[in-house]
Amino acid sequence: MTGVSARDFTDAEDRDGFFGPGSVTWRIHADPSFSVGGIRALLLQALHPVAMGGVHRFSEGFTSEPWARLTRTAEYVATLTFGTRREALRAVRRVRGMHRGKSDTEPTTGRAYSVDDPDLLLWVHACEVDSLLSVARRSGVPLTDADADAYVAEQAVAAELIGCDPADVPRSEAALAAYFDRVRPELAITGPARDAARFVVVPPMPGWVQLLTPARPAWAGLASLGLATLPRWARSMYGLPALAVTEPATTASLRAFRAATLAIPTRVRDNPTLRAARVRVA
């Protein structure tokens, strides 16, 4: 999959992208729950010392421009999901080029790593897939167990494009859960993880934005949901309550958020890449 090029597919395949409007990927990534799932993914990704060390060491704008970084990440996922295959491949090449040649040693583990090590890319991928799927189901997106397995399998395409080893990529919900069970002993809260969580939950905003817009309370609500939807073991690592009694309230809040957002007209709610894709495949 990593060697795929525009010569490998037809114009019709290019138009539909790597997933297509009938995919479970489109259903989940076009849903309002995507925003909460994305925050959950970032918080989960931060718990891998080596992966987070690479972000802290090499990610431009990690501390100075967190909004720009979040926007770039969201645009990459949107292009990979809803763009044409040619657009998706350009986005993949750009990201892989940014990763190339960046190496360091993570101080808490002593591991020498490259940012594009397949196991680190797989961790980022698995956190994203698990988070988007989990939050979508809890938010009320109608997904069967078969749909969940299909989504994990579809997303293997994204993992292989970015450089994961195809043999290691989970292709079912059960395989994804087994992956997290294997990796959990490697996870830890480090200084960069705490910094990342702080920037995700309470990102810096210009004073005029905080005073004249609802951005701060709106983001606080989304970030709180992202934290609350983490697995119990991850919440415990962050020092947050991991009690089962909090789960029903979180699910109710997710469903209320989704219902309120779905009431917004699609021309306002949908991102430009999704709107363009709907026109293109109509």
Rank of each mutant, 00 (worst) to 15 (best):
P166M: 10
S59L: 02
A159T: 03
H56E: 10
D130N: 11
V95H: 04
L274Q: 13
G226H: 04
S35N: 13
D145A: 12
L42H: 13
L243N: 15
R232S: 13
V152L: 05
A197N: 01
E160A: 14
V268K: 01
W123R: 01
D149T: 01
F257R: 01
K102A: 04
G97S: 08
A41E: 14
A218W: 12
L243R: 15
A196C: 06
W233C: 01
H48V: 02
E160L: 05
A193M: 04
E173A: 15
R194A: 13
A223K: 06
V157K: 09
A156R: 05
P170V: 02
L89W: 11
T109I: 04
V183A: 13
P142G: 00
V268C: 05
V202P: 00
V4K: 13
P272Q: 12
N271A: 09
S59G: 00
I162F: 06
K102I: 00
L70C: 03
V202M: 09
E160F: 03
T213A: 11
W208F: 15
T273Y: 11
F199V: 10
P185S: 08
L122Q: 09
R138A: 15
D270F: 07
R27F: 06
D147K: 02
F199R: 14
P142E: 06
A178V: 10
D14Q: 07
A46H: 02
S64K: 12
L230Y: 05
S64T: 14
E186S: 13
R40S: 09
T266W: 00
P66Y: 03
G163P: 05
T273A: 13
H29Y: 15
R182A: 14
D8F: 11
R194E: 13
G226P: 02
S172G: 08
L211Y: 13
A136N: 10
T81F: 10
V281P: 05
A282M: 00
T71E: 14
S114Y: 04
R15L: 11
T10M: 11
A218S: 12
R275C: 00
I28N: 07
Q45S: 04
L80N: 14
T213L: 13
T109K: 03
L262M: 10
D195Q: 09
T190P: 01
A234M: 01
P217S: 11
D14E: 11
V183K: 05
D147S: 01
V50E: 10
L227M: 08
E186N: 07
E247Q: 12
T108V: 15
S236G: 06
E128I: 14
N271T: 09
T229G: 02
